[in-house]
Design a protein around this nucleic acid. Sequence first.
DNA 1: GACCGTTATGGTAGCGCTAACATTTGGCGC
DNA 2: GCGCCAAATGTTAGCGCTACCATAACGGTC
Lengths: 353, 353
Amino acid sequence: MADGGNNGDGAGWVTMGEVAVRAGVSPMTVSRVLKEPDRVRPATRERVERAIAELGYVPDAAAGALASRQSRLVAALVSTLAGSIFASTIAGLGAALREAGHELLLGTTEYSSASEEALLRAVLGRRPDGLVLSAGQHTPAARRLLERATRGLAVPVVEIWQLPERPVDMAVGFSNFAAGRAMTAFLADLGYRRIAFIGVLGPDDFRGKRRHAGYVEVLAEQGLGPPRTFGSGGFGGSAGAGASVEEGAAGLAAVLERWPDCDAVFCGSDPIAFGAITEAARRGIAVPGDLAVAGFGDFDYAGDAGLALTTVRIPGERIGRETARLLLERKAGRLPEPVVVDLGFELVRRRTA
Amino acid sequence: MADGGNNGDGAGWVTMGEVAVRAGVSPMTVSRVLKEPDRVRPATRERVERAIAELGYVPDAAAGALASRQSRLVAALVSTLAGSIFASTIAGLGAALREAGHELLLGTTEYSSASEEALLRAVLGRRPDGLVLSAGQHTPAARRLLERATRGLAVPVVEIWQLPERPVDMAVGFSNFAAGRAMTAFLADLGYRRIAFIGVLGPDDFRGKRRHAGYVEVLAEQGLGPPRTFGSGGFGGSAGAGASVEEGAAGLAAVLERWPDCDAVFCGSDPIAFGAITEAARRGIAVPGDLAVAGFGDFDYAGDAGLALTTVRIPGERIGRETARLLLERKAGRLPEPVVVDLGFELVRRRTA
DNA sequence: GACCGTTATGGTAGCGCTAACATTTGGCGC
DNA sequence: GCGCCAAATGTTAGCGCTACCATAACGGTC
């Protein structure tokens, strides 16, 4: 048998071969101790485990991936980490994945759809065992890459934070439309009659538009007059929160100028609601006395000790964990069918409406 | 020449061999087109590029890593993504890395130091070309792994958001001590004399403790009496922001009970300041009229349209980009020495102090 | 003790790529 | 045209691991 690897140069990682030599077994047995311990006799296993510990051996995942044809890597592509919209989902996804021996490869597009293809190529180069997508839109080139990965090859894809009518593969999220409806109906039930909507309704924000559509529908159903919508065309609902706060303040100003009789505002996101509340305070408008404000997302600062914002809570972390579960199930060969999981949402009434 | 790879099964990725066959060159030439295009004659290069495009070839990074012994992966281990403390740093790091053809592998410990070793093992298994660490503390086992990776092997490490006296390798951040001093001195200059501190001073929060130390020192220097510190022992300064807000509210209540004459509060983080301001509002205490409040971090909601919080701004994204630069420089063989980069901070005066 | 069916272990080959060297090609001076 | 040097391309040999199959060891049966 060879010497087990890179002796001498001192700067290399310990290899499985070296562990094998030390334990007096073949590399194959070391591999089995790592992956199927039950198939190795306890005495042998202990010897190998001791060698692993003594040498500080850490298996090379790239080599393992090459040989086994599975990377144990799941790539998540989100528009941004800022604003903590996806942060809990990513955290849940990562934790659940790690428990199952997989790793999370994170890519953020930061709204540059030009770089989306580059990101996707880079990520596909790692041959991920699964793909998690938050964006709805893709460039044609990116779309083609995705197609190839999903159809021709067997890379499972999960779209999150929405329930597309025609999912690429699987989806975990909630109905933004239903959530928009629910909050609007809730405000109406509370007796508010002149409900405005402030949101970001730019071309990228598929989700925000769905929420707005829900708002519009309830207004029509309940005869609450035409929509009073202020929508900027900026970045998606997950835009840098700072920008959203500005928009909320500016949005409320615009709304009050155009419809001074408003008694409630439904904001497309919590940061927007925060900006609106700040602007209201600046103008001496009492919330909820003169004006009710509702948000969307139940972000970190919305709680009772802070804003006390009435909002819609999204089970962000559960979306992450469920996504991981789906991916793992699919990989294990169970769950051959595409699935769409609706995790719902929750109305949280606090003090602003 | 062989057939170039996995013909027939239809479910595999295109390999370099297949591209080579299509372009009528050897695999090596394809490899060169990808990595050193200048060393390939333009005519040949174009042929290869066309073949790549037609086949939708995406190189297998794991195989490349194995052969070249560089993974082009940088692992970042942060305590959490929540609260958006590190979000901008991670975003900047990821963007800068991607521009240089590297990828970001993200690991969050979520405060479970028990799982820290597992995380580190998983991450080291990918043979990262660099390691970015946000935490100060490590378990003994994790520390040993780190040692081995850093010393024996040549994995560069960058510690961020602080300037350790004895860095493991490199560091990019700012002096939390100096920042604590600066804000306290700033409040003193403004005429506040009875300045309290609310923060999380648990065992993990090295950074928060440094800020507090700066506060204490300025108080002593300027004869402002003994520190009026309320410190909970909870999670680190980057804990879930929701929890921090609660702490800020509870903290202010505790401070006012013990030292009713306070005229200013320096909060160890912006979420804490937010909670404190909310609590002040609840009690009818005018900010900054009756009580000045300062935060730390300049988080997304601190701006003028929102809280208008006086705070300390940390160049989060620049920390990320600078970290990437250091890692890449080191990898390129330049920059053989350990470096500590102080990116400083900035006092932002808004309306709460 | 020869037989068998397990169960435990080892040998061989190769995953897709690239470093290092070998070879070919092309351009140019004389 | 020949020789020569550089540039362009090809060949060989693994990187560290795991799938697959072969062999060896074991424990019981008659």
